[in-house]
């Protein structure tokens, strides 16, 4: 598999950055607590629990209660970080996310661990590829999918400082830390990772480094591909999307999620309303068959070759 020049050799599980950052924030802010569904280990929160046993609230395997309790903790002046497998946190507690967090507007931070198809062979019950679509329907929740360990830490710091509900979609899949000059993270503001004029690749989370590699592959064919890291889906950076549509005339979206209702859906809604251009959506068509993360990524085009292929199709559709 081709590797983007920006990739460092080190591939990291972002749960390490998540836990270290949260512990450090919690040292300085006694309001920070965690709420888990027997997910201390899977959330890498063993160290947090050791340091802050009274601020670690394990409700047991009870996701509705977990999210309701978090809303109550916010009512009581705490800053709760709910950390649980994304598949259960979203699907099992959807009405609590809607009524107790989004509609009631409590300052709750939701951390969806092992999202996308991170559980690989465990299958569709444990995959969380619907979460973008479901959470996009709950507008007041800021929805962020960081792309590497550095951005994970930045997003957690931002969420802790922000007053309002946030969903952070994390993965256990090891991803390269991107070595790009002058990086900064602002929620709701896309990161331009590579300039380009023929097509724009808009990715988030675990797929950003794949989009960068695809852009390098396309450069070898004389195609200038822009790469936008759209870490925040809600609120969407519509300025960056519209500029991409105007300036490059074709867009490919890439996400480790259902190929509708998520990042691709958000971008297509934006362009169709403002500056219609071809948008090719790379993602998963539905429940995944049994397979490893690597084999499923490859089969469904979440690879530099797959993304480059989608870019060629998008460019061919220009003006049609």
């Amino acid at each position: 598999m081709p590797v983007a020049a920006a990739e460092t050799a080190l591939r990291l599980d972002c749960r390490v950055a998540w836990a270290e950052t949260l512990e450090s924030l919690a040292e300085a802010d006694e309001r920070i607590v965690v709420v888990v569904n027997d997910s201390v280990g899977s959330s890498n929160l063993g160290g947090f629990k050791q340091k802050f046993p009274d601020r670690t609230i394990n409700v047991g395997i009870a996701e509705q209660n977990m999210v309701g309790v978090a809303a109550g903790l916010a009512n009581g002046g705490r800053v709760p970080f709910v950390s649980a497998a994304s598949c259960f946190l979203t699907a099992r507690a959807m009405e609590q996310l809607k009524a107790d967090v989004a509609y009631a507007g409590f300052n709750v931070k939701l951390v969806g661990q092992s999202s996308g198809i991170a559980y690989g062979e465990l299958g569709a019950t444990h995959h969380s590829i619907e979460d973008f679509a479901w959470l996009r329907a709950l507008g007041p929740i800021t929805l962020i999918a960081p792309c590497d360990a550095w951005e994970t830490a930045e997003a957690i710091k931002w969420a802790a400082a922000h007053e309002g509900p946030v969903y952070l979609r994390l993965s256990r899949m090891k991803v390269p830390t991107l070595d790009l000059p002058g990086r900064s993270f602002t929620a709701g503001k896309a990161e331009l990772q590579r300039p380009g004029s023929d097509v724009t690749l808009i990715a988030n989370g675990t797929t950003v480094h794949l989009a960068l590699s695809a852009a390098e592959m396309l450069a070898g064919e004389g195609v200038s591909a822009r790469v936008l890291n759209m870490h925040t889906i809600t609120p969407l950076d519509t300025d960056a999307v519209i500029a991409a549509a105007r300036e490059t005339g074709a867009i490919v979206t890439v996400e480790e999620a259902l190929d509708r209702g998520g990042l691709g859906g958000a971008v297509a809604e934006c362009t169709s309303a403002s500056h219609p251009v071809p948008v090719q959506r790379v993602g998963f068509p539905g429940f995944m068959p049994t397979g490893s993360i690597e084999s499923l990524f490859k089969e469904f085009g979440l690879s530099p070759a797959g993304i480059a292929s989608a870019a060629r199709i998008a460019m061919r559709r220009k003006g049609n």
């Binding site: 609230i57 509705q64 209660n65 999210v67 309701g68 309790v69 978090a70 809303a71 109550g72 903790l73 916010a74 009512n75 009581g76 002046g77 705490r78 709760p80 009405e95 609590q96 009524a99 107790d100 509609y103 009631a104 409590f106």
Partner: peptide, 19 residues
Amino acid sequence: TNTGPLGHGFPVALGIAIA
């Protein structure tokens, strides 16, 4: 807190009490 769908207020109250 916002209620209406049943079974929501009790977990929220529990969170308030735990705080």
